[in-house]
């Protein structure tokens, strides 16, 4: 009997929405476990926003109990306000990972390549075609979270 597969929790952020997705299995045979969205107010003060992300990351990690973490960092921020909710939170996620001794990996959209994940065609379509047990309908934001988790699985 082989070693049990690890589970990876991937995060993706867009304005006002924090998406996460949990996958298990291997990079060749990823298996969907769960996904969800937490909404937030991007206009709240920076300190309150930082606390929101610290608590929410902690809550999601406690609930899903992953073996490792991953996130897709967006390079689209073009103002300080956008940096505050698109980029800062992942600094906090790294601190939470450090506190909980969880390995964490960082990716950008370009990381989700055919070479890295072994799919053919479009990466969003690959989520539908390759990830076993995936939901019938899921959108691009949650697929980006899934792709981050997929990257973190063992080859």
């Amino acid at each position: 009997m082989g070693a049990p597969h690890v589970s990876a929790l991937g995060f993706n952020i867009k304005k006002g929405e924090l998406w996460h997705c949990v996958l298990s299995g291997t990079r060749c045979e990823p298996v969907y476990v769960s996904h969800n969205r937490d909404r937030f107010d991007p206009d709240q003060p920076r300190t309150a926003l930082a606390n929101y992300f610290k608590q929410t990351f902690g809550e999601v990690i406690s609930r899903t109990a992953p073996d490792r973490l991953a996130y897709r960092v967006s390079l689209d921020a073009n103002s300080a306000d956008q940096v505050a909710y698109l980029t800062f939170p992942f600094g906090i996620l790294n601190l939470v990972a450090h506190d909980r001794s969880l390995p964490i990996s960082e990716y950008v959209s370009q990381s989700f390549s055919k070479k890295a994940l072994g799919f053919v065609g479009n990466k969003f379509e690959a989520c539908d075609e390759v990830i076993a047990g995936r939901p019938d309908k899921w959108g691009d934001p949650e697929k980006l979270a899934a792709l981050a988790a997929w990257m973190a699985l063992d080859a």
Binding site: D38, R39, F40, D41, D43, Q44, Y52, E59
Partner: peptide, 14 residues
């Protein structure tokens, strides 16, 4: 409690 809190998050009080 998380669902209640998320509803409050969406209020966006200004």
């Amino acid at each position: 409690a998380a669902a209640f809190r998320e509803a409050l998050e969406r209020l966006r009080l200004a």
